[in-house]
Structure formats: C-alpha cells, structure tokens
Design a protein around this nucleic acid. Sequence first.
DNA 1: GTGAAAGCGCTAACAC
DNA 2: GTGTTAGCGCTTTCAC
Lengths: 346, 346
Amino acid sequence: MTNKLITIKDVAREAKVGVSTASRALGGYGYVSEETRKKIQEVAKKIGYQYNLVAKGLRTSKTLTIGYVMPNIANPFFTKIARGIQDIAFELGYNVILCNNDNDTIKTERLFKMFFSNRVEGIIFSTPYNQSLEKMTEIAKNIGIPVVNCYGSTRVYSSDCIIGNSEIGCYKAMKHLIELGHRAISILKVRNSGISRKRFQGCLKALDEYGIDKEPELILDVDDFSIINGYLAAKILMSQARKPTAILALNEQLALGILQTIREESISIPDDLSLVSVDDVLAPYLNPPLTSVSIPTYELGKGAASLLINRIENENKIKYRRIELDEELVVRATTGGIINNIQKRR
Amino acid sequence: MTNKLITIKDVAREAKVGVSTASRALGGYGYVSEETRKKIQEVAKKIGYQYNLVAKGLRTSKTLTIGYVMPNIANPFFTKIARGIQDIAFELGYNVILCNNDNDTIKTERLFKMFFSNRVEGIIFSTPYNQSLEKMTEIAKNIGIPVVNCYGSTRVYSSDCIIGNSEIGCYKAMKHLIELGHRAISILKVRNSGISRKRFQGCLKALDEYGIDKEPELILDVDDFSIINGYLAAKILMSQARKPTAILALNEQLALGILQTIREESISIPDDLSLVSVDDVLAPYLNPPLTSVSIPTYELGKGAASLLINRIENENKIKYRRIELDEELVVRATTGGIINNIQKRR
DNA sequence: GTGAAAGCGCTAACAC
DNA sequence: GTGTTAGCGCTTTCAC
C-alpha cells in the first residue's frame, strides 16, 4: 500500500530547480530567492510532499528528538513534568519520547539503549537512583549526549540539573504546624530515599529553630512511598501512648493511607488531628482538601527542556548548571490550631 | 564532541567479514552461521557499537515508531491508556511518541504533520471529534498509515476501533440507584459530547426498563466536562423545588464539582444524597470514595496497540475491526438506599 | 553462507 | 543564488 514516496527530487523536478535549491527552500536554511522559495513551497504543497525527518536525521545526525525517563507514565506527578517538557520541546521543534522505567535497572538500561539507537539528541530523567541509570548516563555523556536531571536522583552525574528546594518546602510545612501550636508532630518518612532525606532535613531545621526536641516515637520510617505504608504507620501512631496532634507525611501516597486510617477510626480533621502532605497532585481534589507542599512540576519540566535544548544547540559546551525552584506550602482544610484541638477534646 | 560514530562497517572490518554479513548478524535476519554471528556480536559489544535505527528507518521505511494523540498528557485518564499502549509497544519493539492536542484543530494538524515527517508507522488517537482530526486521519489512510481509535470520537474514520461500552456502564449505574429505591435521580450531562450522549442512552435504557419517566427538571446539560460546571449544576439542583435524592454525573470532573457544592451546603453523603460518577480515576482516593463507573483504560490502551501493530505488520490489509470492552460499576461509599435516606430525614 | 555494490532522501561542499 | 555530486549507515538483490 505504501505508495512511492514523494521526495525533494520530485519537488525539484516539478518546480524546475536543482535539488539543493529545493532542499534549502524546504529546510529553511541557506540562500534562496524569495521568488523561487515561494514557487517551491507551492509545488511541494500541490504534490503532497512530506518532509522526511528520518533522512535528515541520518544525514545531519540532528534527529530533533529527546528522550524522557520517568518512573511511571500513569503517575500524574510525572506527567505534569512531562507536560512542561513537551510544551517547550514542541515550541522549539523537538519531539519527546516518553518512557517508564518502573524504577527497574533492566528497563532503564533497555530504554537508554533504545534512546541511543534512535539517536536522541538529549535525555531528561526524573527517576530515583539506580545503578543502570548511573552507568547509562555515564555512557551517554561519553558519546556526547547531554543528560538533564529533572527532580531525579542527585547522586548521578548530569549535564545540568533542575530540582525543587525540598528542604524549604518541608521547612515551611513544619513551621506552619509549629506556629499553629503543635508540639507532638509526627513525621512519616521513607528509608533509603534521597528525596525523603532532604525533606526530612527541612523538618529538622524548623524544629531546631523553635528549639523543639525531636521525639523518636513520632518519627516513623517506612519502606516506600505507598498508600498501604501510610495506612499502617498511621494505625501504629494512633494506637501508641504518645499520640501526635499533627502528622506531616513526606509524600502524597503516604497521606492517602493516613486518610484511610483516619476514616476508619473516625478521627476528625483538623479538630483531632492536623495533616500535611507533600506533592500536591490529588491534594486539592480530596475531601477535605489537603494542606500540602506544592512542587512546581510543570515549571520543572519546562526548565529541564530549556536547559537541555539550549545545551544541544550549543553543542554541549556550556558549563554545568543547577537550578533550584522554590516549593510552596498551600494551606487548605486539614490543618488547624492546637488550641481548638484541646478545647474540642474536653 | 560527537565522536565519529561506530558503524556496521567498523564492526565488519574488525570481525573480518563483509558488511552485509555484519548487517545480517546485527539486524537478526537472513542467513549467518552461528559461529560468525557470535563473533560479530562480540566485536560489536567490544568496540561499543550502537545500532542505528535512523539509518534502518531510511533504508527500510520501518521506523518502529507509532504516534499517540490524546487531549492532555497531564490527565491520568489518558495516561492510563498511554501506559497500556507503551507496555505493548515496547514489548514488540516499538517506540511511542505521545502528544497532547488540547482538543485544538491547529495543534492536531501540526501533530499529524510531525508524525508524517517522522515516518511513524501507525497512529492511535483518544480524542473527541475535531475537523483536523477527521481530515488528517483521512490523509494518513491515503498514504498508508493505519489509524486506531482508542476511546476517541467514533465520528472519524479509523482502521480499527476499540472503545468501552459506555451505554452498559451507565445503565448499570442507573440500575444500581433505582434498585436502592431512588426515583428522583438527577443526571448531569454535557452538550455536544458524543461520549456523554452514549452514556445518557444507557441511563435512559435503565429508566425505561423500570418504567420510570424521565423528569426534565432533573436532567441538566452543561457546556463541558469541568469542575466548575459540576459545582454550578449542583447548586441549581439543590436549590430547586424538585430536589434529587441521587445524582449521576457523567464524568469525574463534574462529580468533583458536585462534591464541592455538597461540602459547602453540608449535605451528607450518602444519607441525604447518593452520588455516582464515571471515569474512576480519582474516585477510589476521594473521601468518601466514590461509587463510580470504571472504564478499563489500561486494557483499552493495550488493545489499541495490539490492533495497530498487528495491522502494521500485516501490511495494513486486514478488515476493519471493532472491539468493545465492558465498563463496570464499582460500588463504594457514596450510594445508599432511599429508605435510610427518608428515615434519616425524619 | 557470504560479499560487492546500489540506493533509501536528505544536506553540504564546492563550482558556476 | 543555484546546481552537481558525494555520502550519512543501513539493507537488499544478486553473484559467488
């Protein structure tokens, strides 16, 4: 069925010009007189010519394609980043191949190989650390493909890096709770997660500033960012002697789990307990809407794409750049003062 | 920086074989003795050869790439479909270019042209009707690129089509409400939306089956699937003389808006009012979790990719296929019996 | 089983 | 300003 393709040669013949002139007119570079350019474009349109980027890619090794690796394409947190990347990339004439790696080393390696085979001109990643990521990133660098880290693991080398200021976000969240009068503040964090660690730093800073000692009983470590772990941790917290008056969950999945426990145990929010989450993806839509640390995902994506394409077009010879965007606290309906809290209990 | 690329020629020279033999070994086709194949692969690995899909694409016009158009990449409903498409495509060695069209004709046209220039081998769309979609789909067909409709507008031509049985989903939802004893059931639908129309058909069928007349006052038409329209419609419903005891919102955004009204007016769910939604993206995470018609998005995506790649590999000469997947009703916490309802009111 | 050579559609020297 | 020509890296006859 694939009819013979119409090429630049056909356009050139039809327009009675040489192929290079046609190429210049259609590719939009070099010298062509306004008159002939017009004629060539008309002919191209008339005979249904479709520019062939594959051939251009082979010839110039400019494929105008970049790759993006995220943990899961079905996770809205990352697709908001992806949206930012796409918007900028498309504006500048680049295509994006979006991929999941499911935080898996085998898949990561396969994806990078696929990127190499497809001759992507640059790669953006938003994934936590894994060995393949580090290894393949190193290879990419060696073959001249720039890599930008967009809210991913800062443990791996990258050409540029754009992240959120995770410390400040959680610092603001803690401060908010402390100023509402809370002292028994529980923090739900995740073992072996770089991002959780940074967020926790912010929490400690706030506690420190107000001279509040951290209470080991109230700080829980779980294995991963999952609803079930949030749920179980909250069960533990609410059954122990030292109960928190507020919980800061260092991720939204954990907060969702906590909400489930809260519902089951008929705890009232924010009267009995205040809750703050991080990520702010579902938070605005929940009932009640969650007070939450908001990460500028869309802007991170836009920034990453700008950094990358800028580097691609400057032949990769720019110095390493690092951008940090502020994270904001959005106060909604799940945080309240400790005073109300105590009054209500009586 | 882009060091001279390592090509099949280099591999051939190093392995002391001809280029065509190297090509056969690396491309995995044609006759090569087991022995030489092994040697060639070893050499390739040793000297860091990266297969060049761009060159292959030019030579064979098989780019192993498909395009996917959805309204918005940041919308989880579509990314669940995208995830299904990707999982199948990757398994079969294909890459996917995912794109937003924002339901805009200009963008749609631009995307299709980009697909053509990139020589994608097939296209999947999940978008509502627009003129460009119809026009560009027609062009794709003419140049031999198959197009699969995945839960998109059935008004446009496609090579194959996979959709949810929207009638049955909403039929089940209505039936559920009727059997709980509800008679004053409000339906929130959207003007000029094909999918809303089909869902509404299902509602009518259930009413019909139980011999219940539809009440025009309870059936509201809004302009689009948005939170604000759900919110406003619910305000109207709850302020009119004939109040519903249940609302079926034909989309989740509308349901989110309704929830907001419910919160503001301190209406209790499901005691004062039952609520059913469609789409089931956020529904399980909301508080209370919504009873909702669930659309098998992931399966739709997988199915679409299978249909498309199957067609690509059979050179597009299969008959038109149409697959309909069932939509299920998931009963959660927002629907209750009218009996309780009345008892509580007293 | 293997190799030589032509060519996919484009661009980039270079000559005119 | 424009045309001629070589060649990007691969696959594909067609001999051998």
